[in-house]
Amino acid sequence: MKFRLFVYPILVLFMFGCAQKDVKVLKLAHGLDVNHSVHKAMVKMGEDLNRISGGKMTIEVYPSQQLGTERECLELLQIGSLDMTKVSVGVMENFAPKMKVLGLPFIFRDRQHSFNVLDSDIGQQLLDEGRQYRLKGLAYYDAGSRSFYTKEKPVETPADLEGMKIRVMESITAMDMVRSLGGSPTPISWGELYTSLQQGVVDGAENNPPSFYLSRHYEVCKYYVLDEHTTLPDVLVIGTQSWDVLTEQEQNWVKEATDLSVPYQRKLWAESEKEALDAVIEAGVEVIKPDKNKFMDKVDGIFDAYKDDEEFYEIIQRIRNTK
């Protein structure tokens, strides 16, 4: 009897350990706060994947740059040290050049137009663009529209940007846009931006309302100008090394869970945008709605620069012609 009492717990632990090994875990890292709609959508995606697969697959989410910046996470995907990540299209364009079309200023007429493009064959074509760089795009998450926020004075017209150092992502398109508007683009990682704003390394930055709020940048920058120059989506990416070892059934499970997370995230995003704007106004931020036409006129030259690239310019035209 004593032998049975001793062996049984060991047998249970052994069986539990084997069961745990049977679960395929995908590691997903990103740089956002746990209160962000994208993080919440990823948590739901993991829950859905576990349910759809009957407990055979799950996702472990590592938020807040625990495993590195967006660029570093993409590099980890390429060598197979990380399975999945979320990055802005602005960062992804360094690995999949045609994606920079989505970061062109005022390329989208409004939010619905952006959804119509991203959910079309144009969006899928651009997701597939990263595969040759060992990065497979799975889906787009709504990241709203990006606008300028500054410390000392509001940017109500492009002339106000003259001489100002504006933080941008590591994106050629974003840098070209700020230059065309008269500012001085300064690439800085998201995790270092709060301190850079405090210390005067940059005079301002540009991002969407929830990111402005959740990062607490509103504590330093008291002017937020809703020029909405770019409507830059986030991209959910899986490394091809991780994707290609999955069975066809496992790939279908991941895709189904991903597809379920997209409308869920978009709903959360719409709610978080309003909450963020209300919160920063309450904290003393002056929110200004400028004449967007003044900004649009200054960036026309960016589009002209692509006319010689027939393949890329065709994508621009297809986006413009999408209803």
Rank of each mutant, 00 (worst) to 15 (best):
Y224D: 09
D110A: 05
G130Q: 08
F303G: 02
F312M: 13
Y140S: 05
L102K: 07
V23T: 14
E93Q: 13
R167P: 02
K294R: 14
H36M: 06
T173G: 00
P185W: 01
I316T: 07
V117K: 05
G204N: 12
M164V: 08
A159N: 10
N321R: 15
V299P: 07
P63N: 09
E256P: 08
I288C: 06
E152D: 14
L193W: 05
A143Q: 14
E93K: 07
P209Q: 05
K100R: 15
L82W: 02
K44N: 09
Y224M: 10
A41G: 10
D234W: 11
V117P: 09
C18W: 08
Y213S: 08
D142R: 09
W243M: 01
E72V: 00
S189H: 10
W243L: 00
N35A: 10
K153E: 10
Q199C: 02
L246E: 08
L193H: 03
L5R: 13
Q317G: 00
R318S: 12
V299F: 01
Q265R: 10
G200C: 08
D297Y: 05
I122S: 07
V155R: 04
Q78G: 03
Q317R: 13
T157M: 01
L181G: 07
F303P: 06
I166S: 01
L214T: 03
S242N: 03
E170G: 00
V262S: 02
S114L: 07
Q124G: 01
R111F: 08
A139C: 10
M15F: 11
V168D: 00
G144H: 09
N50R: 12
R320C: 01
G90N: 12
I166E: 05
E152S: 14
E282R: 15
P263A: 00
D128R: 14
G163W: 08
